[in-house]
Design a protein around this nucleic acid. Structure first.
Lengths: 339, 339
DNA sequence: CTGAAAGCGCTTACAG
DNA sequence: CTGAAAGCGCTTACAG
């Protein structure tokens, strides 16, 4: 057995045409019924020869190849194991396995020159039946190109680029953030500060939107709530000053690296502020390894699973485009309390 | 642009044949020289149309598709991040990126029935130009089938199945283990016990081989050195008993889950034995998060890189088969000392 | 220096 | 119920 057997070989053994072999093996019973004896003979021959369909030919002939692309714009196996994206990838793999799909990790952008790099790399995703995309920025041109070619794709994270035509599975940061602030309001807090990063990613603006919406619904002034800051600006002095101004609760954005919440937590400790006795502190997300901090959980693993499910739905034609937002379970924590 | 442009479209625009387009774009200058004007026209047309070669067609037409398979026999993104295989995967990805290759993760074996499972799944690896394999056991039939079809593959870890025809990049456990024992001998130890797992994986027998070789070279009796044990058998009583018998050094196999070394370390502590004052303890490998333990480091990331490099060498024809063993840096540690 | 033709292994109308 | 034929988008001898 020097060469892998193909349908033609089976056809020869079974004494039928290659077309019939294809029909039998693909289980394509539409409008055609193969006689049971024929089926059996083909199946037997296939088994005997150890036939396995060539996925490449299958794909070229316009069928599916059960390959799902994953485009991360970065390493999928970063050196820091606790990487932000890891659980999402784990979810993607789990769901892919469950659905019988293999994964193509597009990382091979090494050989190309910088200019055509992203463009060509992204276009290469077409080897797969569809592709899951990651990353903060959307390279609009190539993504638009894929969309125009009716190539199934879904982004992980909410996207509003390209006129809102990008399918995605995202996180409902607006609702989750509002819920955190509402818990604070119920506990009697009236003077709240929201510490956010200076960057304007959607995940940042969505959180802010949620925070402000909750404040407004409580008919509280919105004016001085939002404070943009770098982690270096967040120190004991800042928290102490706020305390003196009557602030009773601080809400902190959880960025992908978690630098802001870490700085805030450290600052509180440095300032000798006990949480929640002296100050209530909540995080919009969950700092690594700190389940004691009040906030919410980003369902990252589920994000991955849902992205794959949506992608496969697109591929199988169940739906051509869709945008989904996932709820975040609130984390009670022990760093917020009544005023 | 509803459909992706193909070579035929470029040919039409440039006023040449599709063959010429293929020749120009593939840079295939063997035996053929295209006139510079023609080249330029083709290149311009390709750029203008935003042409990207269809990797599937390329592959079917018997060229390479720059896809490298990775077959793990398990989850590539396990829930426990500190998983044994993770650094290897990281190395694989890093090297693949460096060499401009994408990765296909074969995890989609879910939909198939148990019997044909592994067989079919492994054969599917043929979508890629070649494949890196992992795992303790070699499923001989399908691997043999791939080998016969001249499919480039390399195992991570030494393999002696199939008549030693399996290409691999492994670890020189024999040498690394012997070196550990030699350090002990130099420190004056004469009564040594080697604690190994009950399973006979190559990585286990290789370590044992190294241990015994070192002992023999020192012309010491080999008789009672090797002790097969489950982690449950390794307790304070055992170590105390050995101490009473005059044992001054214990060497422990580091299994993939690290249960044996963990048990030994715990037993020593429970027995109140100070390391290395009361007992020297070395591990053949490195327990997670314990750089203080004497032993050696398994260059896992490098293992991944080298596997990919060997695979690509095979694919490009640089070498059709090869077997490599990597050296392990010794870890001095602080758990062994002079008698 | 360039093109017509066959072929990679499959699927999918379309005939019989 | 089954087969001949075209086609998926490329590469690769082989002619001119």
């Amino acid at each position: 057995m020097a060469r892998a057997p193909r349908q033609a070989d089976i056809a020869a053994v079974a004494g039928v045409s290659q077309t019939t072999v294809s029909l039998v093996l693909s289980g394509n019973t539409e409008g055609t019924r193969l006689s049971e004896p024929t089926r059996q003979r083909v199946l037997a021959a296939a088994e005997q020869l150890g036939y396995v369909p060539d996925p490449v030919a299958t794909r070229l002939a316009s069928a599916r190849n059960h390959l799902l692309g994953v485009y991360t714009f970065a390493s999928a196996f970063p050196i820091e194991l606790d990487d932000f994206y890891y659980p999402i990838l784990a979810g993607i793999e789990a769901e892919a396995t469950a659905l019988g799909q293999d994964l193509v990790l597009f990382t091979g952008t090494g050989g190309l020159d910088a200019r055509t790099d992203a463009k060509t790399a992204i276009r290469r995703t077409r080897v797969a039946d569809g592709c899951v995309f990651f990353g903060r920025h959307v390279p609009e041109e190539p993504i638009d190109w894929l969309l125009h070619g009716d190539f199934p794709l879904v982004y992980v994270g909410r996207r509003d680029e390209l006129g809102g035509r990008i399918p995605f599975v995202g996180v409902d940061y607006v609702a989750a953030s509002a819920a955190v602030v509402e818990r604070l309001l119920e506990l009697g807090h009236r003077e709240i500060r929201y510490l956010r990063s200076v960057e304007d990613a959607l995940s940042s603006t969505d959180r802010e939107k949620g925070v402000l919406a909750a404040i407004r619904r409580a008919r509280l002034p919105v004016r001085r709530v939002v404070v943009r800051a770098q982690s270096a600006d967040v120190d004991a002095a800042l928290l102490t000053k706020w305390r003196d101004e009557g602030v009773t609760a601080v809400v902190v954005e959880e960025t992908d690296l978690g630098v802001l919440s870490r700085a805030a937590l450290a600052a509180a400790e440095e300032a000798g502020l006990r949480l929640p006795e002296d100050l209530s502190l909540a995080v919009l997300g969950q700092p690594k390894g700190r389940p004691d901090v009040s906030g919410f959980e980003v369902p990252r693993r589920e994000l991955g699973r849902r992205a794959v499910r949506l992608l496969v739905d697109q591929i199988t034609g169940a739906r051509r485009t869709d945008q989904q937002l996932l709820d975040c379970p609130q984390v009670p924590g022990a760093t917020i309390g009544a005023v």
